[in-house]
Amino acid sequence: MSKRRKFSAEFKAKLALEALIGELTLSELASKYDVHPTMIASWKRQAKDGMVSAFSGKAAAVNKDGEAEIRDLHAKIGQLTVEKDFLERAFARR
């Protein structure tokens, strides 16, 4: 039984870029790097999708949404901490 291999993001990007350039076919790249052609095609598709979002500004929008979500979560943590402290003091008096 073969073991599943993990590839680094740099390796995937390198292969996807080579596939996008098109100097070698997917089969040639697969034999050169010992990776299945389907994997290279998948990485190539992911690279194309990522490239579109990088130029459309979606990546920046996602980052801003993440920052806003973090701010909201920090506010919620603060609120829950205050409520917890209040309830601890209320039940300590009993």
Rank of each mutant, 00 (worst) to 15 (best):
M1Y: 01
A16K: 04
L20M: 06
K44E: 13
G66Y: 03
R5Y: 10
E67I: 08
A68C: 06
K76N: 13
V62D: 09
S27D: 14
G66P: 05
D34F: 02
R93N: 11
D49M: 12
N63Q: 15
A47D: 00
G22Q: 07
V52I: 14
A68Q: 12
L15Y: 04
H36R: 11
S27C: 05
A61N: 14
A61I: 13
E23P: 08
S42D: 08
A54S: 14
T38C: 04
T38I: 10
K14N: 09
K48D: 01
L17N: 09
K14R: 07
T25L: 11
K32L: 01
G50F: 04
A54I: 13
E10T: 10
E10F: 08
E67C: 05
L26I: 08
G78Q: 12
S8H: 04
D72V: 07
S2L: 04
E67Y: 10
S27W: 09
S31H: 08
V35A: 03
I21S: 03
S2G: 04
L17E: 08
I77E: 08
M39S: 15
F55H: 00
F7P: 02
R5C: 10
A13F: 02
A19I: 00
L26P: 05
R94Y: 14
A90F: 15
I70A: 14
F11R: 07
E69I: 04
G22K: 07
L73G: 09
E18R: 10
V35E: 00
L87F: 12
R94C: 10
R45L: 04
A59W: 05
E18K: 11
L24C: 11
R94D: 13
V52F: 01
F7M: 02
K64D: 13
E18Q: 13
M51E: 10
T81F: 07
K64H: 14
K76W: 14
A60K: 13
N63M: 14
A75Y: 15
E83R: 09
